[in-house]
Write a protein that binds this DNA or RNA. Structure first.
Lengths: 317, 317
DNA sequence: CGCAGGCTTGCTCATATGAGCGGAACCACC
DNA sequence: GGTGGTTCCGCTCATATGAGCAAGCCTGCG
């Protein structure tokens, strides 16, 4: 049972065979002939070698992407996509750059001419579009209003326009804030021709990149932009995450409230209808938000960094 | 061709598949079903994964034996056995202990009741017998005379007797020095009943453990025990190694000289007839001696440590 | 001595796999 | 729009492989 059961000669023989098989890629029959063994014996030695840990198979990649972690995260959370960037980077800005690059690569890879791309406003999404260098010619639809902050120059409009130019497809964009003071204003804005046209295309969006915030100060641009009262109200309703204006609780259920009506953005049902929705979360504070977003089923693709990925895996097990 | 040709999604997919196949041990058909791919596609992705270095297969062992190096050394030198102990140990005595243990394990493993074991005198062989804990009941034959040195208490006689007692088989041992001052004395010694009986068993020996020295001061107990003149004479004849009293040159050819006749030990032809002859060399100074010994075909099994093994591989390539 | 039980070995046969092929899609260039 | 090159894909068929089995073979015990 244990490897110590075997003598050194046996072990070396097994090692030789394992190398022939795994490294040199020979067939078991060839190996059997070479070593004057039956192919069954070879197969058994290889089995032993594997489950005694004598051969260790490592999945690694010279680049920044931790493929093994990516694929395990993808499976653990039941995601369509998961890209885990393995970087020691701590600085949020530099991190966004790396994640943006990975997300941009992902997007150029998975978007085909048949798709309709939806983009929400988020710093991470902006970071992605800045790294984007090529994209199939697809319509690009703005999914949310803008959240203009003094420290951020880019807005959702620029983001969409830039992407559409790169792609060569039509852009459906509009100028409106993400949250407005009351529901009536929001309704009025949604009637605006450009806004209405963009919204009209929500149903045909097949792939989207959205923002993902944890419902706490400094963890969501939307939270930081809203009045304290509304924030508290949503928190009392159990909101732990906002997905580009869609609020979800810890179980992943969308939360509807008066605040929801004041948001000019894609809603939960529309987002749910999109085939692939990708978020780019980072920072350990977002663990619960990511879990909620994934549980909701609204988000089914993630581009993130190793610490957050590991935190997600730990709690899932 | 390059892995950078693929996007992240492709890479992650490949990683997932590689893990399913190599780690989980699923069949390609199963994987193909799971991922909705043709089995051919799966096979191609796995091929890519392998030869792009995405999956790395390591052969390792928690113990002291470097299996991968062992098996590669074995193949590189065309040996029947090669055990490479991976120890950072520098101290010769401690190293002998480790090699002795490995060699002892090897011997208990490979010696069966049908064998006849031959043992030569050598510190390393003594180290091996000291570590020996079990052995099939076989006859044990002393292959060489003793080289008594003031700093070494054990002699070849004790070594053989001890092993035979452990084994439970008969011992063929004799009291005689390894080298004597002249050929006549050697001849006379060979006539001695015990010596003659042991020599009479040389032909039936199937497995032997011998000493291996580099023909230089401090690298061979035999060299150090002989007069300078004889040493020089042998060196002029091209001797680079002594295998328990058998002298070989760099090409592995046995060298016969007047000195040879003064040795009371197994000769080259008799050693050549033994199925497995194992040596336990260590120390980088012995590289050439080991190569010569292997080239001669007299020695076909080696127990050594990583630095010497690597040195042997380097020069071979 | 004889026999039961565990263990190893190599077999059969159904299934998995690889080599090589031809067709479809794509591309760049006429 | 044609055209040759290239790549990718999935097929066929011969081969490799695994599951399970039965025969040999130790080993310990009555």
């Amino acid at each position: 049972m244990e490897s110590s059961t075997f003598g050194p000669a046996q072990l070396v023989l097994t090692a030789s065979i394992a190398r022939r098989y795994y490294v040199d890629g020979r067939s078991k029959v060839e190996i059997a002939d070479e070593f004057r063994l039956s192919r069954f014996k070879v197969a058994r030695l290889l089995d032993q070698a594997r489950n005694s840990g004598l051969v260790r198979i490592e999945i690694s990649h010279p680049g920044a992407i931790d493929l093994d972690l990516s694929s395990r995260l993808q499976e653990a959370l039941g995601l369509r996509r998961a890209i885990v960037v393995d970087t020691p980077e701590e600085d949020p800005a530099a991190l966004r750059l790396q994640l943006g690059k990975a997300a941009a690569d992902l997007l150029s890879e998975i978007v085909t001419a048949d798709d309709v791309l939806g983009l929400a406003w988020a710093r991470a999404v902006t970071a992605m579009t800045e790294q984007l260098t090529s994209l199939a010619p697809v319509p690009v639809v703005q999914l949310t209003g803008a959240l203009t902050r003094p420290d951020v120059e880019a807005n959702s409009v620029e983001l969409v326009r830039h992407t559409a130019r790169l792609s060569g497809g039509p852009a459906y964009l509009f100028y409106a804030p993400l949250v407005v003071p009351d529901a009536a204003t929001a309704r009025a804005l949604r009637q605006q021709p450009e806004v209405a046209e963009a919204i009209g295309h929500f149903d045909s969006v097949t792939k989207a990149v959205v923002g993902l915030g944890s419902w706490a100060a400094g963890q969501s641009t939307l939270y930081d932009a809203m009045d304290e009262k509304s924030c508290d109200q949503l928190r009392r309703r159990g909101v732990v995450a906002d997905i580009s204006g869609v609020f979800v609780d810890a179980d992943g259920r969308p939360v509807h409230s008066r605040v929801t009506d004041r948001v000019v953005a894609i809603n939960a049902a529309q987002m749910d209808a999109i085939d692939e929705v990708i978020a780019i979360p980072y920072g350990l504070a977002k663990v619960d938000a990511v879990r909620a977003a994934v549980r909701s089923g609204l988000v089914n693709g993630i581009v993130t960094h190793a610490p957050l990925a590991k935190a997600l895996m730990d709690q899932t097990h």
